[in-house]
């Protein structure tokens, strides 16, 4: 078997596919051609830029460059998880950062150090794509879990205060809602584990097969990746929710009045991210987009790239 390289000329030919999309948009008057044009351009520019960047990291093969790349990926993942929240407050970004970092680093260490035994550990060929999959899923899990937790606390103030009044700690009063938030965030991952390979071949496995790996070898990778994603999601969501719920309570186990939490209005369109992270996002390393980001995360967007 041989690997077919896509040259620049072939890429131009792929514009035929964009033409099909454009034709549908024009024919049905979907009024999407503007966005389609920008999207086509952005896809090309962003991926090309990332490709060159990765090429540099691969060629130099230095541990500190790898760490730098992982750090940037982590910041962007945390910022995205933060921006997807219906309710944002000071400190939530750092909770996201900490949760994704914790879940990510532990899982990454297990996969790279114990399962794959990559030597040296910082070989970009392994650590960068694997970290990408871990962080992407941890990000979606954290975003889902904290959004759900916020919604549950809002919807169940009565039950929470009833539990507090009966002598429960803040943690015990909020525990049922922590659980449902965690379940909501874990469920997409678990249900993917149930159907993986039956409906659709996971992206990474497909990639390996195209690149020439035997399907059997590709499958073993995919199994590891699937377990890894589940573990990263579990660790990240539990950390994020356990840290986030505290914001809604005082140290005296009192549920803060709702007015104090209504900060979304003022911050709309201008997320109060730390300055450096804001710039990073503006430059669009990973778009996320305001329109897509504002809504709660769609469970279907969980993908093992």
């Amino acid at each position: 078997m041989q690997y077919i390289n896509i040259g620049h000329g072939d890429l131009v030919l792929a514009l035929v596919l964009v033409g099909i999309t454009l034709a549908v948009s024009l024919w049905q008057r979907l009024d999407l051609h503007g966005d389609l044009f920008i999207g086509t351009l952005r896809t090309f520019i962003q991926l090309t830029a990332v490709g060159y960047l990765l090429q540099v990291i691969f060629n130099l093969n230095r541990w500190y460059l790898v760490i730098l790349a992982l750090g940037i990926m982590l910041l962007v993942a945390a910022a995205n998880a933060y921006r997807r929240q219906q309710e944002r407050w000071p400190g939530l970004f750092f909770i996201m950062l900490l949760a994704i970092a914790l879940g990510g680093i532990i899982t990454l260490a297990i996969v790279i150090g114990i399962v794959l035994k990559v030597k040296p550990w910082y070989q970009p060929q392994y650590i960068i794509p694997i970290a990408g999959m871990i962080l992407g899923n941890a990000m979606i899990g954290a975003a889902l879990a904290v959004n759900r937790l916020t919604g549950e606390i809002k919807a169940h103030r009565g039950e929470i205060e009833a539990a507090l009044s009966l002598g429960a700690t803040a943690y015990l009063a909020v525990l049922p809602y922590l659980r449902s938030a965690l379940r909501a965030a874990m469920l997409p991952t678990i249900s993917t584990m149930m159907t993986v390979g039956i409906v659709q071949l996971p992206g990474m496995m497909s990639g390996q097969i195209i690149a020439g790996a035997s399907p059997a070898a590709a499958v073993r990778y995919q199994v590891v990746v699937t377990y890894m994603v589940a573990a990263a999601t579990a660790l990240t969501t539990i950390t994020a929710t356990l840290l986030a719920y505290r914001y809604y309570f005082t140290p005296s186990h009192q549920l803060k009045p709702p007015e104090q939490n209504n900060k979304t209005k003022k911050q709309k369109g201008k997320p109060d991210l730390p300055r450096g992270v804001r710039g990073l996002l503006r430059r669009g390393i990973k778009g996320g987009g305001d329109a897509a980001g504002a809504k709660t995360v769609d469970s279907k967007s969980v993908k093992f790239n």
Partner: peptide
């Protein structure tokens, strides 16, 4: 102690807030 206080001073609301 807040937990002992809340046990000594029980509360019931307008709407029943029973747990599942």
């Amino acid at each position: 102690n807040i937990f002992i206080l809340r046990r000594r001073v029980g509360m019931v609301w307008q709407l029943p807030t029973l747990f599942p």
